[in-house]
Write a protein that binds this DNA or RNA. Sequence first.
RNA 1: GCACCCAUAGCUCAGCUGGAUAGAGCGUCGCCCUCCGAAGGCGAAGGCCUCAGGUUCGAAUCCUGAUGGGUGCGCCA
Length: 581
Amino acid sequence: MNLFTDIRARVLEAIEAMQAAGDLPEGLETAAVTVEPPRDALHGDMATNAAMVLAKPAGKKPRDIAEALAARLASDDRITSAEVAGPGFLNLRLADGLWHGVVRAALANGTDYGRSQLGQGQRINVEYVSANPTGPLHVGHTRGAVFGDALASLLAYSGYDVTREYYINDGGAQVDVLARSVYLRYLEALGQEVAFEDGTYPGDYLKPVGGALAKKKGDAWVGQPESVWLDELRTYATEAMMDLIRDDLAALGVSMDVFFSEKSLYGTGRIEEALKTLKEKGLIYEGVLEPPKGKLPEDWEPRQQTLFRSTEHGDDTDRPVMKSDGSWTYFAPDIAYHYDKISRGFDALIDVFGADHGGYVKRMKAAVSALSDGKVPLDIKLTQLVRLFKNGEPFKMSKRAGTFVTLRDVVDQVGPDVTRFVMLTRKNDAPLDFDFDKVLEQTRENPVFYVQYAHARACSVLRKAEAAGIDVSDGALGAADLSGLAHQAELAVARKLAEWPRLVETAARTHEPHRVAFYLYDLASEFHALWNRGNDEPALRFLQEDAPATSQAKIALVRAVAVVISAGLGILGVTPANEMR
RNA sequence: GCACCCAUAGCUCAGCUGGAUAGAGCGUCGCCCUCCGAAGGCGAAGGCCUCAGGUUCGAAUCCUGAUGGGUGCGCCA
């Protein structure tokens, strides 16, 4: 149930009636007609731009159209007033019963109130994290993981058939480095002195992997050349790292539907197949790239390479898919991977990358556009840097100083709920400050606490009401007489609840889950305000002595707030708190 | 040199993908607990939405250019 689309439908009905009556010409385009909350609540409950949008094509003055529209809408008993304002806005005030309907809808549908069919069951693939399997996830990955996961949930809530996917970069040279590093830890576990030179991973997290290997293999690989152990160790080490990463993700509450291995693309003809598809479209050629303008790399020299004509699909320059020595560039398996996603029948793709991958956006979009003949849209969301703070002081990450901050460090210190919420209180394309101390503060400036507190307060009222003998089951509250819910302060909260389905749709359409977090903060603010007004105006207290029917109406509103907060937090992957301690 | 992202109150940031007098938190100043949790609430002050053009009924939002910051730029995935 979305009150805004209901009223918009009513407005369009009135426009059709005006056309039938000859007040407006036939065949007008009404797609641009919107019904939205006015910026200033004093203007009314909803505003439509219909008259201004239609004025030009209809050849009439906006205010004249608005007047005529107002007359027709005013006859609807759901609309208590329709006033023309400004250049041709039509401000509508709605009957209290509609706001009561919002409360009832929230109680009847529970956390499904707000669910939409925007996606119409379209299959959409969200790829995120996709960190190299060479170590534990760090803070940067954490933001991508939280963002991707919340986006996926948001899309699922909006009627898409979502697949959450992780691309394992297990095909490149970094896996050899990993295998050699594990080999050193293996030797170490067997009592040898080892040195970690440049080009190896010295992290402690490989110690248990080397230890386990020593148990499994004994000294069979000691003193043996790489040719004996490298292949097997690559697989072994990668699997160990993926176990580690899966555990990290689980600690954050993230679970993937698909882990896709880059390695599975090599030696199976799948890269060749993807490139053949591009070649058939005339997009693959042998050539020499122009040198980049400005300062050249020291060792620059023209080289003959196999290139993808990505400029045909919006890129700035063509991109190499094969190195001069005949091996694939990293881009080739990426093309094959996205070709695979397209082949699996997804209607749309989303990639979540770190900001340092901004340079690959155009070429990746070009590849998907070429491979799908422009039929499968690819949206790439970049998550900006996370800056760490402790007590307001910048906190520099350094592997050497041992202050390398992992996902685990963050989750262990502040918990998954706080981590997730905080990471979503900023747009993905804005840098994020994460202060280990501030995110745990219990004050209004900490949105996590503020929203959780609102939910806990609502639960507290429900408990008290129940203790007072009021039936607070959703069924009873939904069936209650809500006429006791008539004060503007109370209806203001219901108005906010009415925006929820609309908010979900815009957030889903723009792929911006942070909007949910900000909405919840606003809703919490409305609720806290109403709560406190009870201090000055006893009539606004939720529990009314000796007036169980009135109390029940007010409790219904409280419960509806709790339901929507719970639904919103659910999308963000945060557990609502029933009480604060 | 080129591409992408960003620029909104003293600070940190929203702004519903073109709507009315641009919002919130922090900070500053002034209020509200014999009362469901004051871990909260109410109010005041604070703005050339970086700048200059353009598009139109209407621009913080779209386009062009400039300035300032971030990221990246052919055998590293």
